[in-house]
Structure formats: structure tokens, C-alpha cells
Design a protein around this nucleic acid. Structure first.
Lengths: 329, 329
DNA sequence: CGTAATATTGTAAAGGCTTACAAAAATGTT
DNA sequence: AACATTTTTGTAAGCCTTTACAATATTACG
């Protein structure tokens, strides 16, 4: 190509000067660089990828960016990947759009790996990816039936820890604000809470409301839960954004005090949870660690590796939305 | 390739069945589809792009996702682009990373267009992009010297409207919480406020504090501003996240009332601004419209088009952090 | 039914790069 | 200096498509 001609070298030579680790003399390299600069030459990744079978692109499927947890995942993933010279190609399916089609498009782009945060994937597609040696890792979700990697916070552990905390805080009547969508994580958190409440204190009556996974959803669901005959004195919100809505509903609409009248605990630890206005006690979703493991799973060469499920311990972040342990304990 | 062989047709035929609008009989198309399904064939965008010179990828450079404005831009852009079958390739430079290198990498990926939200670009690079016919559009920022497109909210208009509002609310002593980084938007907002305050009411003394563009930054800056000799009764926060921090500092640390003791106005209208806990009056950054125009600018074929600067009127979102107009007006 | 017009198909070149292989140059060894 | 090594370079094939062009099949029409 032109650069080669101008520099008076072979095409292979220019390729080598732009491929770190190739054998090229500094004399040639210098000539090529000069010519490249003169011609505003930029290597063409397409052609390169076509032959090397590596695009340095990882596809990421995100449900939406409204929930800050996803922003955090996205941000962290992007940063870490960039350290390896690879970029994120973003896919945000809108509801009617079926996932299989999105997956298919990812494959068309020949991405090096596929990361799916929430939302699921059909086993047909999982097989397709496997067949093409494209690692798939699910973030914060897990389908045992699927042979793809997954990394997530330990929802059960988190649920238990949350239940313990509210129990220790002297809670007697419990409420749960859950998401209407049936994400496994939500379900697991809920089950764990219910089970622990029952097994450790014999509590069976828990008021549950489902809402959308938004501030508004939490607000409405809180209104619902708190107006039940036996008003809860302890509230689990399966997601921080919902917790924020719930807190605002409780304080500003219902005029109740947190945590005196009702203790609130959330899940995720989004940035707002730390705001002075909320100071929400929550079970953290370990974004850094999740992405760290994601990177490892992506790097796994052969798809011969059996699918791994990595589970990260829950970490309780204590703030002021829950009662501290009564003194007599 | 294999599909062609299995289907018993030419390579061109399979290409045509996967290229909408090509001339292909339904008989052949059916045969090809069958074979493709059998072989799990997925078209290779790389090869296609190499020849068509279109990747259906748009590069987006974002400073960080902490600020929800950027999440919103990202989200909206991704959604709109997907409607045109194109995906976002994300670049999040970390500070030490120089922008020119990032730009260069974008070009290597042969992206169809480059969108830059905040952060700047050297004129050398602008020229390079122009030379390769890659449209560049800057979001929310503008450098007159650069020949790239830009679309942004009218910061001046916004500043004036904000100033008017706080003035009408009976403000006498004013404070501004600004960002330490020198984004043009910040500067323009500040200038506009200062100018309007001065020209319409002869106010020259304004307490200004710079902070990081974060909740924390706003919190600290508010503490600083509010402890000045003449404590402001009206506070401009050049960014909503900073405004949230400021509000929390004012209420929970300083124990002052909003808006009675001090009126607060922000810029951007991020989702949290609408939360019951804040109810922040703010000047909206018109994300939808910005992306809408971005799409148009990207579509512009020839880079012969002169660079356009699209300015969108500011919209005041009235909530409860500002005083309403005194009755005697 | 024969010819003209149109639609469908195949052939082969091209797109910009990497890389196996062979040839040439530089370096080391005795 | 003669040879064995090692390093550098060039040649050419190949990665998977699209597409101009020519060839063939189909349809329309008098």
C-alpha cells in the first residue's frame, strides 16, 4: 500500500512496524513511521481482525442505564478492558427486541467475548457462542441449565445478612419490596430473607409488594406495603433505587421516621445510598470484584473449560437507615 | 464458503441473501437460509465492512459515568443508533491517557462517526478525521476554532434564566458553585449568571467556589461558600450532582432550610433532582434533543458540509428548592 | 412463437492486512 | 576467512465478503 511505497519497503514491513513484537529493524521502522506520519496512515483494524480472528471488542448487553449499578458495571468494565486494548461494544435491547437477535448481531461483529448483565439468553444461542469459541459471561445472573460462565454477588448470603441485621435491630413485622421482573437475583434475595426470618425467628407473615425496579416503583410499593393492616417496622428493598423511593415515600408522604418507625435496608450500594439525605444501609454488590472475575473468564482461551460460576460474598454497608443492635443484646 | 457449497449455490448468492435489497430469487434464498441454519452461519461484519467501508459502529468518548447526565446521553444515543442498526463503541479515557491516542484508536476501528461528550480534541486530530471523512460531533462542548460539529444546550440562555429566577425569588446575596475543570459549558453558565446579575440588578459581589464535579465536591464547596462573611441566600450550582451535595451540606451539616434560608438551583436535571428528598429546581440539559441532532449530524455524508453548531434552548424545571416569586411582584 | 426487456446467477477482483516460507543480511565462532 | 547462527526482509497466499460485469434464465409482448 501507499505507505510501503513511500517508505520504499515491502507491505510486510509496514505491517511489522505496527505489530508490536514483530521482528523489524529500527532503520526500517523509522522509515515507515515517517512515511505513515506523512500520509496520515492509521492501521485498519478490520483487515487485521479479519485475519487474526481477534477484534479487541467485547460486547456488553445492558438492560438500561437508569440503575446506577449498571453504570458502575459498565464503567468499571470499560476501564479494565481498555487496559488490555479492547473496547466495549454496547447493546441495549429494548423490551420488544428479542435477545437472540441481539446475540446474533454481537456474533456478526465478531466480538471476542460477550458479557450479559441481566436479561437472559437462550440455550440455542449459548451453544452457538460456544461453538464459535466466544466466551459468554453473565453478570449478576445465573442459569444453571446454561453452559456459560457467570459471576455474581452471593444473593443468598446477602439476604441472610440483611435479615439478621433487621432482626437484631428489633424488627417484629417485616415487609419486602421486590421487583416485578423475575430476575434470579431478586428471587434469591427474597427467598433467603424469607427463609432466614422463618428459620431463625419463626416469622412467616411478611408483606410483599412488587414494583418496577425504579425510584417510582419503590415509592409506590412502599406506600402499598406500609398501608397493610400490620404496618411493618422493617423493610427490605431488593434494590437500592427502589429503597430510595421507599424512603422518600415513608418520610415525605407517610411522615414516618427512619429508622425509628421503620428500618430500611437496600441492596447494591449505589452512590446515592451514601448521600446524607438517605444514608441507606445496604448490601453491596461488589462491582470491582465482579469485573475482575469477568476479565479472567473472558481471557479463558478454550471454550473447553467448563462453565464457571463465581460467587462473591455479600458485604453489609452499615449506615443510618437501620436501627443499631438494641443495648440488651 | 461452506454455506455456498452446502446450498449448492455461488458465494455471491449467499452474500445476496444476507444483503437486504439485493436481487435474489426466493428459491435460492430459501436454500441458502436452510444451509446457513444448518451450519450455524453468521455473516462476518468485518469482511463486509472492509469492502463497504461502513462498520455500523459509532465511537463515543465519555469522561465518566458517575454523572448521570452522561449515562442519559449514552443510553439515549445507544437506543437511537440501534434503530439504525449501529452500535456504540465506548471509550473512557482515564486522565493520564491522552485524547489524541484515543482518537487514533477510534479511527483504527474504522468507526463511522465519532461522538465526544466533554473532553476536547486537538485540531490535528480534527483534521485527520475530516480527511478520512469521519464526522465528529461534540456534545455539550464547543471549540469555535475546531472544525467539527457540536450540539449543546444554550448555556448562556440557561444561566440567564437561572439568574432571573433567583432574582425574582428575592435573592440578595449570591453564591456560585462551579467545577474546577474548565469545561466551556461551566464557564459559559457562570459568565451568563454573573453578567445578568450585574446588568439587571447591579450585583457584582458573588461568592464563588470551585469543587470537583461530584456530590462530594458540591458538598465541600457549599460549606465553603456558605461560610463566607455575607452568607448567600441564593446558590447556583453549575451541575446537579454538585447541587445535591450542596443541598445536603446546607440542610444536614449547616442546618439551614431550603429554600427559606437559601434557594438552590442546579443544571442538568438528572433523575435524582426529582426525588422527594431534593426537589431541585434546575435548568434541564435536553438530552433527547441533543441526541436527535447528533443523529442528523452523523448522517451528514460529505465532510464538505461546514461544521454546524446546534444550540438548544434552556428549559427551566421548577421544583421546590427555589422561592416562588414574592407576592408583591 | 420469436424477440426484447428484465431479473437472476456466477465469476473473479478487490478490500487492507498478517504470516508461513524462503531469501538475504548481519552476527558470531573458531 | 569460512562457516554456522541468528536476524531481518520480501513474496505471495489467504482472511470473508461485496460488487462490477458478463452470462444465463425468466417474463412480457406483439
Amino acid at each position: 500500500m501507499d505507505v510501503a511505497r513511500l517508505a520504499g519497503v515491502s507491505i510486510a514491513a509496514v505491517s511489522r512496524t505496527f505489530t508490536p513484537g514483530s521482528s523489524i529493524s529500527s532503520k526500517l521502522s523509522k522509515k515507515v513511521h515517517k512515511a505513515a506520519l506523512q500520509l496520515n496512515y492509521v492501521p485498519n483494524n478490520l483487515a487485521r481482525s479479519l485475519i487474526t480472528r481477534r477484534t479487541n471488542i467485547v460486547a456488553l448487553m445492558l438492560p438500561n442505564l437508569d440503575n446506577q449499578v449498571y453504570s458502575a458495571l459498565l464503567s468499571e468494565a470499560s476501564l479494565r478492558l481498555q487496559e488490555n486494548n479492547t473496547q466495549l461494544l454496547l447493546f441495549t435491547p429494548n423490551d420488544d427486541n428479542d435477545f437472540d437477535r441481539t446475540l446474533q448481531r454481537m456474533l456478526e461483529y465478531q466480538v471476542d467475548a460477550i458479557v450479559i448483565a441481566a436479561a437472559s439468553i437462550s440455550s440455542r444461542m449459548a451453544a452457538l457462542c460456544l461453538g464459535r469459541d466466544v466466551p459468554v459471561v453473565m453478570l449478576g445472573r445465573h442459569l444453571p441449565s446454561l453452559s456459560v460462565h457467570s459471576v455474581r454477588g452471593d444473593a443468598e448470603d446477602g439476604g441472610v445478612k440483611a435479615a439478621q441485621l433487621l432482626l437484631n435491630g428489633g424488627g417484629k413485622r417485616f415487609g419486602i419490596i421486590s421487583g416485578s421482573q423475575s430476575f434470579t437475583t431478586m428471587l434469591e434475595r427474597k427467598q433467603a430473607i424469607l427463609k432466614h426470618l422463618s428459620s431463625s425467628s419463626g416469622i412467616e407473615d411478611v408483606v410483599i409488594a412488587d414494583g418496577k425496579l425504579t425510584y417510582e416503583g419503590g415509592y409506590q410499593a412502599a406506600l402499598e406495603v406500609m398501608s397493610s393492616a400490620e404496618r411493618p417496622d422493617s423493610l427490605f428493598c431488593l434494590t437500592d433505587i427502589m429503597a430510595l423511593g421507599a424512603m422518600d415515600a415513608i418520610r415525605h408522604k407517610l411522615n414516618l421516621r427512619i429508622p425509628e418507625d421503620v428500618a430500611v435496608i437496600g441492596f447494591d450500594d449505589i452512590p446515592e445510598a451514601a448521600h446524607e439525605s438517605y444514608k441507606l444501609t445496604t448490601v453491596r454488590t461488589p462491582v470491582r470484584q465482579m469485573i475482575h472475575h469477568m476479565m479472567e473468564l473472558i481471557a479463558l482461551e478454550s471454550s473447553e473449560e467448563p462453565p464457571q460460576t463465581i460467587m462473591i460474598d455479600a458485604e453489609l454497608i452499615l449506615r443510618s437507615s437501620t436501627r443499631s443492635v438494641p443495648s440488651h443484646l
